[in-house]
């Protein structure tokens, strides 16, 4: 047990928690980057490969559209249905293949990204679905290309919803990152587990909890603020 009367106790705590926060932000930040890139793409493809969608007939055939749509939908569902703690363990060989190790903040990025992509993809899909079909038709009537319709109409109009989805995803990733931390992924979860649990320090535990609450509050508020600013409905 840690001695809270030790003169360096509080400065150690401060330093450890600060480092943990840094690691958490790093892990979450990098996985968020990949999540956004792939999740946005997957969300767009999910909507557009549906019957009557912009990419209903990729490579000139509806069959391809159906296949791509169904496979992607299945993947997203699988990704969302495996509890993160199991997904994390399942992915260990894959993580090792990519990062070279399955321990540490960088290794934690892999399962976080894999869990984040389907989550964000669904939110993007929902956001784009909310865009009235009439807007797409208006752009078509102006002679817009599919790419223009996609980028300047569908995604552009869904931006406020996507911003909210983004903050929800960040909150989710912060939660997952604490779970990875507990099994060697570093970050605040690691601090809470090693100091708070294994070394019975309520001070560490408390500090981590407060920081997590602050982080979640911060990102959720940022998301809400961005969505409000971006929406002109």
């Amino acid at each position: 047990m840690l001695d809270r009367n030790d003169p360096s106790f509080w400065s150690d705590l401060f330093e450890t928690v600060l480092q943990g926060t840094g690691e958490t932000l790093y892990t979450v930040g990098i996985s968020l980057l990949f999540t956004v890139i792939f999740g946005l793409g997957a969300g767009v493809v999910l909507v557009t490969t549906e019957a009557g969608g912009l990419l209903a007939k990729p490579f000139g055939s509806r069959a391809w559209g159906i296949i791509i749509n169904k496979v992607l939908d299945l993947l997203v569902n699988i990704g969302r249905s495996i509890p993160f703690i199991i997904l994390m363990i399942l992915l260990i060989p894959f993580t090792r293949l990519i990062v070279g190790s399955f321990i540490g903040p960088t290794a934690a990025i892999v399962p976080l990204t894999i869990a984040g992509i389907p989550f964000f993809a669904r939110l993007v899909e929902i956001g784009i679905r909310e865009v009235p079909i009439g807007l797409v038709e208006a752009a078509e009537s102006l002679g817009a290309t599919r790419w223009t319709i996609l980028s300047k109409v569908m995604v552009a109009e869904a931006v406020p919803a996507i911003a909210l989805g983004l903050s929800t995803t960040i909150v989710g990733l912060i939660g997952y990152s604490a779970m990875v931390g507990a099994v060697g992924g570093g970050g605040l979860g690691d601090v809470a587990f090693r100091y708070g649990y294994q070394r019975y320090s309520p001070e560490y535990m408390f500090a981590v909890v407060i920081l997590l609450i602050l982080l979640v509050q911060l990102f959720q508020s940022l998301g809400n603020f961005a969505a409000r600013r971006l929406s002109h409905r």
């Binding site: 009235p132 009439g134 807007l135 009537s141 552009a156 109009e157 002109h232």
Partner: peptide
């Protein structure tokens, strides 16, 4: 060929 619509179909973000 320009077209106008019953529900205007303007982009709310623009």
């Amino acid at each position: 060929i320009g077209m106008i619509f019953q529900h205007f179909n303007l982009l709310s973000s623009r």
